[in-house]
Every structure is written in C-alpha cells, then in structure tokens.
Computed example of a mutant assay.
Amino acid sequence: MIYSNYVKRLLSICLSSVGLVLASPIMLITAILIRIKLGSPVIFSQERPGYKEKIFRLYKFRSMTDARDESGELLPDKERQTRFGRILRKTSIDELPGMWNILKGDMAFIGPRPLLKEYLQVYTPEQHKRHNVRPGMANISAIKGRNKLDWEERLKLDVWYAENISFLLDLKIFFQTIKVVLLREGAPDANDSTRGRLDVAVTGKKLKGE
C-alpha cells in the first residue's frame, strides 16, 4: 500500500523534524523543571517492540521519582508520581521526546502504542498483528476511551488499525487525539487501575523481560 509503505514515512520525517524545532523551547523548560523536581535522568528510556517486533529504545520525559522501599525495590507507580508528574502525563508533554523516535523511523505519529517487550510472550497470534505497522505516539484506543478500555479491547483496536490503515483514518485519529488531550479525556494516571500490566492480567504473574 503506497500510503502505509511510503507516504506515511515521508510525512513522519517532515512533521517530526518541524515538531522537534517548534517544541524545543517547551522541551527545554520541561527538562529543567524535571531536573529540579524529579531529579535525573531527565529522559526515561526503555526497550519496546516496534515494526515487525524489532526492539527499539523508546524515549519519554521522566514523570516519576526513584523512591524505593527498605529492600531497594521501586515503590508502586502511584507512590512515585508527583503532582508535577501527573501534569506531564495528562498534557502528554512527557511524550514529546518520542518525536526523535519518529524521526529515526522507530515510530510514527499514529499507530498502536509501543508496549513492554515481555508482553510479546502473552499475545495471541491475532494480537501479534498489531506489529505489522510502526507503533505511534497517538493511537486509536486513545480516542475510544484511552486507558479506560480493557486490554482485550485495546489490542483488538490495534489489530483493526493495522489492517485498515489509511491517510483519512490517520487524519481522523490525529484531530480527535488533539481533542482528547485538550479535554484530558481518559488521561493516563498512575492511580488508574486499568493501567495494570497485560502479563499479570493474562498469566497472573509478572513475566521477566527478554
């Protein structure tokens, strides 16, 4: 398909280049505030599976502290996220460094959300199809309820998107995502119980990464 194979990648390069330049003042101020309020490193990075399940390193602004318990283990997310961190997530400012991933070709602006790589172990054959397209910063589940959807619904939407990708669909998701962000509808929050891990939901235990 011409759009998904060529046009979308060209648009991603152009838009991410412009976006990085325009967002640089916001990113600089955000980085300074994170360093003051949350410490270092300012950028959070983690390996995620991308197109055809190729592993890449995702970049985001840090939104939680490194608070640990007496045994040195990280505290639960909701205990490590400050009011400032919640603002970063609700406004999606924490996602801005992801434009570097888009420019590199790891991601696109629109596509299934890049999830943890250990989840590859629990996907059904049908759910693996979500990796037939590049992952994105914005995705169809975000405009259908965002993190209020359960895992089965979210993954089903991802597969549907991968099989129906088009310019008009991406345009629709793009503009509706702007609406969702501005209205803060279903914004991610460490206190949102629907953000539980997929591996725990399926197997009852946390799986180790590859």
Rank of each mutant, 00 (worst) to 15 (best):
G72L: 13
P76F: 12
I143G: 01
Q176V: 09
D66W: 10
F109R: 01
L157A: 06
L88I: 08
P25V: 10
G196F: 10
M27F: 00
R195N: 10
I102M: 05
I55A: 13
L155I: 09
A201G: 02
V42Q: 02
M107Y: 03
K208V: 12
E73G: 09
K156F: 07
P76E: 07
E153F: 04
P125Q: 08
L10V: 11
M107Q: 07
R62P: 10
N101I: 01
K8D: 01
G145P: 04
I140S: 00
G105K: 00
D150R: 07
G19Q: 01
G98P: 02
M27K: 03
V42G: 01
P49E: 02
E47P: 05
L22N: 01
Y59D: 08
G145T: 08
G209Q: 12
L58K: 03
G145E: 01
P112F: 03
E153P: 04
F61Y: 09
N5P: 01
L155G: 00
R154V: 02
K179D: 12
I29F: 09
Q46I: 06
Y123D: 02
I173A: 04
P188Y: 14
L115Y: 07
E79P: 10
L96P: 02
G111W: 00
F61D: 09
A23Q: 06
P25Y: 04
Q81C: 13
G98T: 13
V159S: 09
L88M: 10
A108I: 01
V18L: 13
R197Y: 14
T30V: 03
R62S: 05
T203P: 03
V133L: 07
I140P: 00
F167A: 15
A31V: 05
R86A: 15
L74F: 15
Y119M: 02
I178G: 11
T194L: 10
L33R: 03
D150N: 15
D158F: 00
I13Q: 02
L157I: 06
I140R: 02
T65P: 06
I165W: 00
P112N: 10
Y6S: 08
E47Y: 08
E153T: 11
K179H: 15
R9V: 03
K129L: 15
P112A: 12
G85A: 10
Y161P: 00
W100E: 00
A190M: 08
G204K: 03
Y51M: 08
R89T: 11
G145R: 06
L11V: 08
K78Y: 14
A67C: 05
R86V: 11
L155W: 00
T91V: 11
I36L: 11
D69I: 12
A138N: 13
P188L: 14
W151T: 02
S71Q: 13
A187W: 07
I102P: 00
F56W: 05
D170E: 13
L15K: 00
N139L: 01
D170P: 04
R68Q: 12
